[in-house]
Design a protein around this nucleic acid. Structure first.
Lengths: 195, 195
DNA sequence: CTATATTCTTAACCCAGGTTAAGATCGTCA
DNA sequence: TGACGATCTTAACCTGGGTTAAGAATATAG
């Protein structure tokens, strides 16, 4: 399968984008590769593109004004959309950095083209809604993890639900994602050995 | 202004719903009043309606399995949409209770009718997308509060950004919303007197 | 205007995570 | 292989929130 076919298939699965609707979008998709540490979008930049990850892992992080620490917010991997959603939707400067953690390849589309597609076809308006719903689920899950679970529970759930991340990301990045410091994660891991 | 006109105006402001698009929806909106403590939607129920609050305040809360404590997730008030968004969108059982904290009045529409409107008009498909984006912002703000702020900072921001809630909701409900116990909120308040 | 329920604060003790700094382990590349 | 950098763990001490239970303040109803 070509990369375009992969994209077509994924969009069909995700939002019922059919051949003719995909045709409308075909001229707009572009391809880009990232080296480890390169940015998809940076702090204060407006995110103008919606990306589809063909291969690789990205992380979105926040830099705390006071502590100057990086706090990981999301991980994105293969066959997922990567986007700084709020910035993209409101076309306002982003609060985050989104960087590639590996060699990565994406296909991406400009917001103006996407907006154009929204106007041209119900399918694409539907796609926009489904992307929004997906973004909502990501954010809500994140909020729930912090509101209802302890760091230890979050750690266990990460291992359960995202072994791909757990296995491919250094522990200090995972600690940050869990909202704790690296030494605390070490203590949690030690505590759990007995169980 | 009649209640229908208020709704029409609000929908136009929010999503550019024009007179003719509103006409399509007019037969579907219904009115309902709630007493203090009555539920908009309960745990394990599928949320089938999207509500628009004409007057009153609602809270959405989670009951923790272990502690059996109520944890407040969202407050909704006048001129806002009230909905258990995830449950509504996926038509799956809700994890939350949403109850009226005051005497309240809403206008509401059934998901099937809304879906029908999505199919009939771009305007309504757009409305669906904007509701999704609003829900995303709510959830993301909540996640950010917990990921990046201390309880004290969350408290200060609540006073700043939501004085309506701060002034009309008992402190133990606010403590729960901030993710802490009532005695901790008391300590924070005491600590701040000096500042 | 009292009585009662609700809400809020306080005190005492406990514990998980933060902080800092040192050292152990692991990987990788010359 | 050996040396360096990256990652992970550990120790010691600190701090803020949790827990429980009591009491103070505030509302509300009779």
């Amino acid at each position: 399968m070509t990369e375009t076919q992969i994209l077509n298939y994924a969009l069909n699965q995700f939002a019922g984008i059919d051949a003719s609707a995909f045709e409308l979008s075909a001229p707009y998709w572009q391809r880009k590769t990232y080296g480890k540490g390169e940015f998809y979008n940076e702090y204060k930049n407006v995110c103008k593109y919606l990306g589809f990850i063909l291969d690789g892992v990205f992380r979105t992080y926040y830099i705390d004004d006071e502590s100057a620490e990086e706090k990981n917010v999301f991980f994105f991997s293969k066959n997922q959309v990567v986007v700084a959603y709020k910035s993209f939707v409101t076309q306002t400067p982003c609060s985050y950095y989104t960087e590639s953690m590996t060699e990565s390849t994406i296909l991406y589309i400009h917001i103006n083209h996407l907006t154009e597609l929204y106007g041209k076809s119900h399918h694409w308006e539907r796609f926009g809604r489904l992307v929004a719903e997906t973004a909502f689920n990501l954010a809500m899950n994140r909020a729930e993890e912090f509101m209802f679970r302890t760091p230890e529970q979050r750690y266990l759930e990460l291992i359960q639900n995202h072994p791909d991340i757990f296995n491919n990301v250094p522990l200090y990045h995972i600690a940050s994602y869990l909202g704790i410091q690296a030494p605390s994660l070490s203590r949690i891991r030690k505590r759990m050995v007995g169980k």
